[in-house]
Amino acid sequence: MPTSIAITRHQGQDALQLQAPDGARATLLLHGAHLVSWIPAGADEQLYLSPRSAFATGQAVRGGVPVCFPQFAERGPLQKHGFARAKPWQLVTAEVGTDDALAVLRLNDDAATRMVWPHAFEAELSVRVAGRTLEIELACSNQGDAPLSFTAALHTYLRLGSVMRASLQGLGGLAYWDSVDKRAATQHEDLLRLDGELDRIYQGVEERLLRGAEQGHGQDLTLRDGDRRVAIRQQGFQDAVVWNPGEAKCAQLADMPEDGWRQMLCVEAAQVLNPVTLAPGEDWAGMQRLELL
């Protein structure tokens, strides 16, 4: 019989403390449906959270897993990364099961969202922790009488021991848009090494995963950080964004320490280059799965 999880407080915000029977833990804010901590069973913190992050109404948290919706970055008329990450979400369910802990939060349109994005919608974020895995799913349904289109991402900040010793494996052969150099290119090496500002949108990541599964071999992205390995898989999201601000840009971010760029890498399950379009009554869902190997 599942056991309900009560709302608690974290950094002055309403939050859910998820803890699976095996000890896996996660902390999810109702503000922005923002995951701010993931500690696998028998391990330590896997997400980066800036020590200078503001936990304030209407402001986005720097680090963890921000929800970018219904717009990614500044690719549209809305505020950067959309409004979802700065809105209060409603609790649908939060419970501990036999071998996991699960929470579901919901966001509906209101007068404020309709002023900037005139659509009736319902979004849900589901977070599940068990053992050494974390699953985050973002879903959206069109509840209006006209089509709607959006872009979205799970803006996952992964903690690093040192960016100079870290790399991301599994990108070889993928085309990408370089948002720093403003050009299209192809990743020729399978291993991406990190040494400065990086902002790329890789295409066809989900297709690569599906093709690998059909051929009987894995095509996960893998973060390599010293002896640590984190496998990163996605479903429903076609793109993956890889971002690190680098030294110069990090120094300009008021909610990041100057050396914060050395301790994080964003690997984001994203739908950016081809927006999702939903007819009235249609649904969409995308998921990112992380596993500490």
Results as ranks from 00 to 15, higher is better:
245 P>T: 04
223 L>R: 01
210 L>S: 11
142 N>V: 07
186 T>H: 15
174 L>Q: 10
246 G>M: 07
176 Y>C: 08
140 C>F: 05
243 W>S: 04
228 R>T: 09
168 L>W: 00
139 A>H: 05
243 W>M: 02
174 L>W: 03
156 T>M: 00
150 F>V: 04
140 C>Q: 08
205 V>H: 09
182 K>Q: 13
154 L>E: 02
222 T>Q: 11
205 V>K: 03
204 G>E: 04
214 E>Y: 14
171 L>N: 04
237 F>E: 01
223 L>G: 00
172 G>N: 03
226 G>K: 07
189 E>C: 10
203 Q>P: 10
195 D>M: 08
206 E>D: 13
250 C>T: 12
167 S>E: 06
188 H>K: 13
152 A>C: 12
160 L>N: 08
230 V>G: 08
157 Y>P: 01
171 L>G: 00
175 A>Y: 07
169 Q>K: 08
253 L>C: 09
155 H>S: 00
169 Q>S: 08
180 V>P: 14
195 D>K: 14
165 R>Y: 10
227 D>S: 12
248 A>I: 13
222 T>K: 07
187 Q>G: 04
158 L>D: 04
254 A>S: 12
215 Q>I: 04
190 D>T: 02
259 D>Y: 14
247 E>G: 11
217 H>R: 12
222 T>R: 10
259 D>R: 15
233 R>K: 07
180 V>F: 14
254 A>K: 14
146 A>G: 08
256 M>Y: 13
172 G>S: 02
179 S>G: 10
251 A>C: 10
253 L>V: 11
152 A>R: 01
150 F>E: 03
160 L>E: 05
192 L>H: 01
177 W>Y: 13
175 A>P: 05
179 S>I: 08
136 I>Q: 09
220 D>R: 09
181 D>K: 15
179 S>Q: 15
247 E>C: 11
143 Q>S: 11
239 D>R: 05
208 R>P: 04
192 L>F: 00
243 W>F: 06
220 D>I: 05
155 H>G: 03
254 A>F: 11
238 Q>I: 13
156 T>Y: 01
244 N>W: 08
178 D>Y: 11
225 D>T: 08
142 N>C: 06
175 A>W: 08
142 N>M: 02
139 A>N: 07
166 A>K: 02
258 E>A: 13
204 G>T: 10
238 Q>P: 15
174 L>S: 07
225 D>N: 09
161 G>W: 09
233 R>W: 04
225 D>I: 06
213 A>V: 07
244 N>L: 04
177 W>N: 15
146 A>E: 14
249 K>N: 08
